[in-house]
Design a protein around this nucleic acid. Structure first.
Lengths: 210, 210
DNA sequence: TTGGGGGAACTAGACGGTACAGTACTGGCC
DNA sequence: GGCCAGTACTGTACCGTCTAGTTCCCCCAA
């Protein structure tokens, strides 16, 4: 997988240098000159690897959808272990929160949202490959818990949506509107995760396991 | 209040024309020439009313924070009427959803988020005056319901956060990542509101009122 | 009530300065 | 000899200013 030929190496160099440039200034505000300078590469080389600015931009974004793998693995690993459900849900919530509040990921979110109208395919793909995919994994895990009688739910997908909604709406919005990175201390995230997991359980746990 | 002198009229003309320009292209992508042309106004006039691009931009955004009034009124009007709580919550949820899924408001959200790093004050103010304010109103109303024993809650603010999280996370994210406007039919919004209100009640209603 | 005058507000467009996308060329390094 | 850094170049776009001529609004005198 790791092609360390000169060509691939240069390409990676450019992508890595270009990401912060686009993240900082948005698509229109990003300068190809700056990308080349930051990558220690000539502009000619940039244009050899990417036909134009647009293609470089979409490459940057698409290259990040692989991160979701980690999330989906965490979901099944945490929920399919037959242990204490309340504890597992807290742990899952905390893991989700930690992953999504990563400053780099938040900036990517902002960028994709901002350009969703200019690059509709990009927004749609990011949504499907990241958002929807982890949601479906979570729904499947909830479905299994429902069959085991631990959760009481008619619609696992809805339950999954409610779980992430309870957990993420407030902190993500706060982060999106307030640029700063040090919004939440670890203890705050713990508290948020616990509160969301608790509310979810009250709404969706089977009465006979209370 | 309505000063229809020429000056005020021109100013309104410029603001109205500038909004779509900034919404479509973002701050950097918006052109003052286009604003002037769209407002049927000379550039000189634009610069007479607004010292520069930045000030025009912030004026556009700030002028919209007044819309929140409607939301807060809806909250108290719906929840403080002593009627059927389940019905009231559904109605409130539906009202919230309808208001926030307004295409214009969604585009504004996107814009403010996108520029939150470039204009930190703008993002913070928008968050405080819109987001936090309606949240506090909702929390206060929930607090009153708690005192009447209808809801069971230790922390009204947390309950309010959970209410909007259950309701808004999914549709707002979908709308933010997918440019299109006709994502949800009215019936879909009804269903979303009902599901969120139901889950909230299961998590927060007093057991003795079930 | 009416009919100007005065002056602010406005229009149209050119202009300087800057920035940037993408191309072309040159000289050096492997 | 081929690849690449560095850089100059072309064409375009745009902010904010400036000039010069025009229109509108308000007040006051007749």
């Amino acid at each position: 997988m790791e092609d360390n030929g000169r060509t691939a190496r240069k390409r990676a160099q450019i992508l890595e240098a270009a990401r912060p440039v686009f993240l900082r200034n948005g698509y229109v505000g990003a300068s190809m000159d700056e990308v080349a300078a930051l990558a220690s590469v000539s502009k000619q080389t940039v244009y050899k690897h990417f036909t134009d600015k647009e293609q470089l931009f979409t490459s940057i974004i698409m290259d990040t959808t692989a991160q979701v793998e980690g999330l989906t693995k965490m979901i099944t690993a945490t929920l399919d272990d037959d242990g204490d459900l309340a504890r597992d849900l807290r742990a899952l919530a905390r893991g989700f929160l930690g992953a999504i509040m990563e400053p780099e990921l938040l900036r990517l979110r902002r960028l994709v949202m901002a350009e969703a109208e200019r690059f509709p395919d990009l927004g749609r793909t990011w949504y499907e490959r990241g958002f929807e995919r982890s949601l479906k994994t979570l729904a499947a895990a909830f479905g299994r818990l429902g069959e085991r009688g631990v959760l009481r739910l008619d619609d696992p997908e809805l339950a999954a949506e409610h779980f992430v909604g309870l957990l993420l709406w407030i902190p993500v919005n706060k982060a999106m509107f307030r640029g700063g990175n040090d919004l939440y201390a670890e203890a705050d995230l713990d508290r948020l995760a616990e509160a969301a997991a608790g509310a979810f359980l009250r709404a969706y746990a089977s009465p006979d396991t209370a």
